[in-house]
């Protein structure tokens, strides 16, 4: 597999607004990114090695966030491609789309989860800030977690009004835990999983920030890894000593923790998908 171009489609719906920075991060991770407009021929999608559904407000969040996009032809192709083991990352609105397609948690494409309105202290609505998340997967499990150490904690921004993972049935989460589908959970800077706002920025059950399908190749992730992919993007008050300022441009341009999601994706593709 080494040496060939890895092609990733970045899906663009009307209302998507993170497609270009997401594409830039994919390119920086050593893959090529093609911003793929929703009304292009969906059969073209089969030629890609992996897919990212970026953030935004697809279709104005009509009905529910992600609901309309999930019914488009390209999402039907996505479900097929997921079945082949290709990696699919949904970020923020993309996570909402994946949940609406039933790909996550992925019980015969039933819609078992939703992303509900945030529960916060203070005025409700959109919340944008940096949070910390902890990797919950075991080594080399999960197409987007492979380069994270077990229990590794990273800073990452959240920006959403509807980011609270909820499930239809009480036992869905238990099943997901048993299956190892819990990808990332909100925590403190030292890795403690506390339910209190703003450690948990939206009130999600289990502090869930990122959930996998059963096979581990599809991740619905509410925080935005593409916005924390270089050191320059990380707020100075999350660094104890203000290193960024003192270490200059070279340090600012070094890859940050968000990049690991995309490097993991590349690693996963290079190793060869389990099913072809």
């Amino acid at each position: 597999m080494k040496g060939r171009q890895i092609r990733i489609a970045v899906l663009q719906f009307p209302g998507t607004n993170c497609e270009y920075e997401t594409a830039a991060v994919i390119e920086a991770a050593g893959m090529t990114a093609d911003v793929f407009r929703w009304n292009r021929r969906s059969s073209e999608l089969a030629g890609f090695d992996g897919f990212v559904i970026p953030g935004g407000f697809s279709y104005q969040d009509r009905i529910r966030a992600g609901a309309v996009a999930s019914k488009k032809a390209i999402c039907a192709v996505l479900v097929e491609e997921a079945g082949k083991g290709k990696p699919i990352l949904g970020i923020c609105n993309g996570a909402q789309v994946l949940v609406e397609t039933g790909l996550v948690p992925g019980n015969e494409s039933r819609i078992d989860m939703a992303l509900a309105h945030n529960k916060v202290i203070g005025k409700s609505g959109y919340h944008c800030d940096w949070a910390f998340i902890r990797n919950e997967t075991q080594e080399k499990v999960g197409a987007f977690s492979r380069l994270f150490a077990p229990n590794e904690v990273i800073p990452i921004p959240v920006a959403h009004a509807e980011g609270r993972f909820v499930t239809k049935n009480a036992n869905t989460l238990d099943t997901m835990v048993r299956n190892g589908q819990i990808g990332f959970r909100y925590c403190t800077s030292t890795g403690e999983v506390l339910e209190v706002f703003p450690v948990n920025p939206n009130g999600a059950q289990l502090n869930l920030a990122g959930a996998y399908n059963r096979a581990g190749n599809v991740l619905a992730l509410m925080p935005h890894p593409e916005r924390g992919a270089w050191n320059r993007q990380i707020p100075i008050d999350l660094e104890r000593k203000g290193q960024r300022r003192l270490q200059g441009l070279e340090y600012s341009r070094m890859q940050g923790p968000g990049m690991k999601f995309f490097l993991s994706m590349r690693d996963y593709i290079l190793e060869g998908s389990p099913v072809q």
Binding site: N17, C18, Y20, E21, A24, V25, G55, G122, K123, G125, Y126, H127, C128, D129, P157, A159, H224, E226, R227, A229, R232, Q233, P235, I236, D237
Partner: peptide
């Protein structure tokens, strides 16, 4: 903070310093 926490400061990935910093 109660005002600007509602504003997306991060979209486009260009932010270096934000309100509050």
């Amino acid at each position: 903070y109660p005002v600007y926490r509602h504003y997306d400061t991060e979209v486009q990935g260009m932010a270096v310093l934000r309100p509050g910093e």
